[in-house]
């Protein structure tokens, strides 16, 4: 009964061979992982957030571990869109998985410029618009907290690309469903949630915030119930596919996101601990479906709402 379970997922015009992607900022430009896993096994991967110009990022310390989680304030260090296209993408020529470019800007014009530059890059399947990075002073989450801004930014990017547009949402808002609705009204083909939760760790020896940026984004297993709850809430309000992300470190949590309403999922911090975790999660999802005699992964998406 090989291949009896259908793991494929459709997102707009794209077909993913399974629902497992990697989350931006946790997978570099993907080639780094070639040594540790089979990139072809993935549905796709979201590369490190890209800006128009290279970005140096925040001063260290940038990370600190917390119980079952970690706080980071990298500050979107990246090589910039031009070097990404010229140097990083060619390394993925032979990889059979969707590449999603996460894009970031401080104003709408920059997002549009990034969309323009990627429009004719065939290897990039979709754009993930980052309106939710908590660790940069301008742009990022400032867009993501206001429904009007999310609407106008999404529609601007949509006008400049034929690729599916995914809007990545911040959990640091009162009503995430309202923001998701605004993204959809702006033409988003999907939304991904959640980005990290803003937090702080204080070093009691120095009596100062531990991170140079003072605050950082909390990720890891500690945050997954927040993500599952938010996916559940958003699923009831929007029609487009949801990409669930936040604290997934095994297939059980991945399944929880799917049951809450996510059509696809992204694995983030868990890649740091186990570079092969995505492959293990794909296997776990498949085994679960086989065990439950469920033919297609789509059959469990949002199933928790039936209760």
């Amino acid at each position: 009964m090989a291949n009896s379970v259908n793991l494929t997922v459709k997102l707009g015009s794209l077909i993913f061979k399974n629902p497992v992607l990697t989350a931006s900022g946790t997978f570099g430009y993907a080639a780094e992982y070639k040594k540790y896993m089979d990139l072809n096994a993935l549905g796709g991967f979201v590369v490190k957030g890209l800006s128009v110009k290279p970005k140096k990022g925040n001063k260290p310390p940038r990370i600190v571990e917390t119980p079952c989680g970690m706080l980071n304030a990298i500050g979107l260090q990246n090589v910039g869109i031009d070097r990404f296209i010229k140097e990083k993408l060619p390394l993925l020529e032979d990889v059979d998985a969707h590449i999603i470019a996460n894009i970031y800007g401080t104003k709408a014009d920059e997002f549009v410029e990034l969309a323009d530059k990627l429009e004719h890059i065939g290897r990039v399947s979709a754009l993930e618009v980052n309106v939710s990075c908590p660790n940069v002073s301008k742009g990022g989450a400032l867009f993501g907290k206001n429904p009007n801004d999310v609407f106008s930014l999404t529609s601007s990017v949509k006008k400049h690309t034929s690729k599916p547009v995914i809007v990545k949402l911040t959990p640091n808002v009162d009503d995430v469903a309202a923001i998701a609705t605004a993204a959809c009204d702006g033409g988003a083909d999907a939304v991904s949630l959640i980005n990290t939760i803003t937090g702080m760790v204080i070093d009691t020896k120095t009596k100062k915030p531990f991170l140079a940026n003072r605050t950082g984004g909390l990720s890891g297993p500690a945050i997954y119930p927040v993500g599952v709850r938010m996916v559940y809430e958003v699923y009831e309000k929007i029609k487009v596919p949801i990409i669930g992300v936040g604290g997934i470190y095994n297939s059980d949590i991945a399944l929880q996101y799917l049951m809450a309403g996510a059509a696809l999922i992204e694995i983030g911090t868990a890649n740091f601990t186990n570079p092969n975790i995505t492959v293990e999660i794909i296997k776990g999802i498949k085994e679960f479906l086989e065990g439950e005699n469920i033919k297609s992964v789509g059959d469990i998406v949002g199933i928790a709402h039936n209760a």
Binding site: F27, E32, K35, K48, P60, R62, I63, I74
Partner: peptide, 8 residues
């Protein structure tokens, strides 16, 4: 392995 950029 060079991806988190936390140790710079």
């Amino acid at each position: 392995i060079g991806v988190c950029l936390g140790c710079v």
